[in-house]
């Protein structure tokens, strides 16, 4: 597969390592009353869509950016590639 890196252009997916669903960005609050349950859900319960999937890829043999790749799991079409750090900020991850 080819991942169109937002900064570096098209790169072979061999340069990347895959992590999983982008929801892993959304790490729960450790001080919540039900923190254990929230973390359990965060870590173990994922959607497994047949179709569009937003997933985390790491450009390990490249610029070391984590990317959010929107990929169709049926066709491998990649419709969007974004810098995960930007997405994390948009999702309200802060200090």
């Amino acid at each position: 597969m080819i991942i169109n890196h937002p900064l570096l252009g098209p790169r072979d997916s061999q340069e990347f390592t895959y992590l999983g669903d982008m929801s892993l960005i959304n790490r729960p609050d450790w001080e919540a009353d039900d923190a254990v349950d929230q973390f359990h859900e965060y870590l173990y319960l994922r959607d497994n869509p047949a179709g569009e999937h937003k997933e985390l890829w790491f450009h390990e043999q490249g610029d070391r950016s984590w990317l959010v790749v929107t990929r169709n799991t049926l066709t491998h079409d990649i419709t969007k590639v974004e810098i995960a750090k930007d997405i994390a900020r948009q999702m309200g991850r802060s200090k």
């Binding site: 960005i25 985390l56 790491f58 984590w66 995960a84 994390a88 900020r89 991850r93 802060s94």
Partner: peptide
């Protein structure tokens, strides 16, 4: 890098 970029992007 995951922690730095995705979990706590503003550190």
């Amino acid at each position: 890098e995951f922690c730095r970029q995705c979990a706590w992007p503003d550190l």
